[in-house]
Design a protein around this nucleic acid. Structure first.
Lengths: 129, 129
DNA sequence: CTAGGTGCAAAGCGTTTGCTCGGGG
DNA sequence: CCCCGAGCAAACGCTTTGCACCTAG
């Protein structure tokens, strides 16, 4: 692993995500950090968000067709995105009852976007060689 | 509904998606259609892909963090994306046994990306007013 | 001192859009 | 003849990156 130095900016980004559980986008985090440190740059925010997500210190929510969002709560859980206001709701899925329980909670389930990421048979075989 | 005219380009785009079940991206479809009609433009391909997807004639697969892919098979089904080669595999999910059955088929499930799109309680209430 | 981090700006990628012209009905 | 659709290129939104400078260790 690469040596990692302390940086004021990285700590600020981490604290900002941890303090705002509204699933902010990178741009929103940029705005929030700017309030505390008016010289922080977009690039730094993105670099640190990606770094912190890789290290598992924050969660990166890939929203299909929209900007990524970040979550300070790192316990594995899922998200329901409102197509109208963009709100992201934390949600603990019971797969069998997914739609049904979502509907019970008042969320009208219109599109279920499921993407499994992983490694396919072919690539697993190739990796063995 | 708006009147819709026939267009050679739209038919070509539709046929191209139906004939290539490899889940091509818009760019790949652009390349394929260009082989048959060297004057077709990117904008036309995108416009028609979106139109056909809206009409349910093709399926649009939103790949988080990557280009959208299109599928000529419109029966509802899900997809597993390989993080290494980008291959998109058709998959019929049994939610309970999701990971288990995926693993049985040789796909190493590394990241389960679930996003439900729909309308949240707040917006449903507002729409009623 | 030196390697990792920053700010800045430009480039990148996938996609959409404004405009003008062509062609289906 | 009307107006939807095409072609083209510019603009878009989000994100990454190259570079020169700064700073923690």
């Amino acid at each position: 692993m690469k040596a990692q130095r302390y940086s004021k900016q990285r700590e600020l980004v981490l604290r900002t995500v941890k303090d705002h559980l509204t699933h902010p986008t990178a741009l929103e985090i940029y705005g929030l950090t700017r309030e505390k440190d008016p010289t922080i740059s977009m690039g730094t925010v993105y670099r640190n968000l990606n770094l912190l997500a890789e290290q598992g210190k924050i969660l990166q929510i890939k929203v299909p067709g929209g900007a990524d969002r970040f979550d300070g709560i790192i316990e594995p859980h899922n998200h329901a995105v409102c197509t109208k206001c963009g709100m992201v709701m934390d949600y603990c899925f019971d797969f069998e009852d997914l739609s049904r329980s979502l509907e019970k909670s008042g969320f009208k389930c219109e599109e279920l976007n499921i993407t499994v990421r992983g490694t396919c048979k072919n690539c697993l075989t190739k990796a063995d060689e």
